[in-house]
């Protein structure tokens, strides 16, 4: 499923809203999450999961083409951990 399909489905389910409004809602939801992470915060959505930012230390790496040693700077990467309810839904057949 891609974003446009998600929007189309929400729009069909909510005929009292315009497609434009639904698009904006989906945009706001994911923008808010990004902004929270940018601010050094977390996103916690019970039942769905949590997004956080993890820091990765600087390390030595190699250019895979030439084999030259290069240094890779420390960085922050977004991380998602699925929530309990979602994990259970995914493995409901067991």
């Amino acid at each position: 499923m891609i974003k446009s399909e998600l929007i189309a489905k929400l729009a069909t389910e909510n005929p009292h809203l315009t497609q434009k409004d639904v698009e904006r809602v989906v945009g706001v939801i994911f923008d808010q999450m990004i902004e929270a992470l940018e601010g050094g915060g977390r996103v916690e959505l019970r039942g769905f999961g949590a997004f956080s930012v993890r820091s990765r230390p600087a390390r030595g790496g190699r250019n895979p083409r030439t084999g030259d040693a290069v240094s890779v700077k420390a960085k922050h990467v977004p991380f998602f951990k699925s929530g309990k309810e979602l994990r259970e839904r995914l493995n409901a057949d067991e």
Partner: peptide
């Protein structure tokens, strides 16, 4: 740098 935690209520 400790930011806030975003929840469903904030999204709504």
């Amino acid at each position: 740098m400790k930011g806030e935690t975003l929840t469903r209520a904030d999204l709504c």
